[in-house]
Computed example of a mutant assay.
Amino acid sequence: MVRFKNRWLLVEFIPSAQIVPSREPEPLTSRQIYSALKESVVSNFGDTGWGAVGFSLTVKYYSPMTNICIIRVGRDQHRIAWGAVTLLDAIEGRKVIPNVVHISGTIKHTQLAAIEHNRVVVARYRASVKQAAASQDSYEQFLNTSTREIEALQD
Results as ranks from 00 to 15, higher is better:
Arg31Trp: 09
Val122Arg: 04
Gly105Thr: 12
Leu112Arg: 13
Val101Arg: 07
Pro21Ile: 07
Ile70Trp: 02
Trp8Asp: 01
Tyr34Lys: 10
Ser22Ile: 11
Ser40Asn: 06
Ile115Gly: 05
Lys60Ile: 07
Leu87Ile: 03
Arg94Ile: 04
Val20Cys: 05
Val129His: 13
Asp76Tyr: 09
Thr58Asp: 13
Gly46His: 02
Glu12Phe: 05
Glu149Asn: 14
Glu116Gly: 13
Pro64Gln: 04
Arg119Asn: 14
Gly83His: 02
Lys95Asp: 08
Val73Ala: 09
His109Leu: 12
Arg31Leu: 07
Leu112Gln: 15
Ile14Val: 10
Ala133His: 11
His117Leu: 13
Arg148Asn: 15
Met1Asn: 11
Ala133Tyr: 06
Val41Arg: 01
Ile103Asn: 05
Pro21Tyr: 10
Ile71Gln: 00
Arg7Pro: 04
Val85Trp: 02
Lys38Phe: 02
Asp155Gln: 13
Phe4Gly: 05
Thr106Asn: 10
Thr29Arg: 07
Glu12Asp: 08
Glu116Phe: 09
Lys5Leu: 14
Asp47Tyr: 10
Tyr139Ala: 04
Asn44Ile: 04
Arg75Glu: 06
Pro21Val: 08
Gln32Asp: 06
Ile115Ala: 08
Ala113Phe: 01
Asn67Arg: 11
Arg148Phe: 07
Gln111Phe: 06
Ser135Val: 14
Val11Trp: 02
His109Arg: 14
Lys38Glu: 07
Val96Phe: 04
Leu87Gln: 11
Thr110Asp: 08
Glu39Phe: 03
Glu149Phe: 09
Lys130Ser: 15
Gln154Glu: 15
Glu39Thr: 09
Pro98Phe: 02
Ala52Phe: 14
Trp8Met: 06
Ala90Trp: 02
Asp137Lys: 07
Asp89Gly: 08
Ala134Ser: 15
Gln131Thr: 09
Glu39Arg: 07
Trp8Glu: 04
Ile80Glu: 01
Val121Ser: 04
Ser146Ala: 13
Ala123Asn: 11
Asn118Tyr: 01
Gln154Thr: 15
Asn6Val: 01
Gly46Pro: 03
Val122Pro: 01
Val20Ser: 11
Gln136Val: 14
Pro27Trp: 01
Ser146Ile: 12
Asn6Trp: 03
Ala132Gln: 12
Ala133Val: 07
Tyr61Gln: 00
Arg72Lys: 10
Glu140Lys: 15
Val20Ile: 08
Pro21Ala: 06
Ile14Met: 04
Lys38Leu: 04
Val100Cys: 08
Ala36Ile: 00
Tyr125Ser: 04
Ile91Pro: 01
Lys95Phe: 07
Gly49Arg: 11
Trp8Lys: 00
Asp137His: 08
Ser138Asn: 13
Leu143Thr: 03
Thr106Ser: 15
Ala132Gly: 13
Val85Gly: 00
Ser63Gly: 01
Tyr61Gly: 00
Ala81Phe: 00
Gly51Arg: 15
Met65Ala: 06
Arg119His: 14
Asp47Lys: 12
Gly74Glu: 00
Glu12Gln: 14
Leu88Ile: 03
Val129Gly: 10
Tyr62Ser: 00
His78Pro: 03
Arg23Cys: 05
Thr48Tyr: 14
Pro64Asn: 10
Arg126Leu: 11
Arg3His: 07
Ala90Cys: 06
Ser104Gln: 05
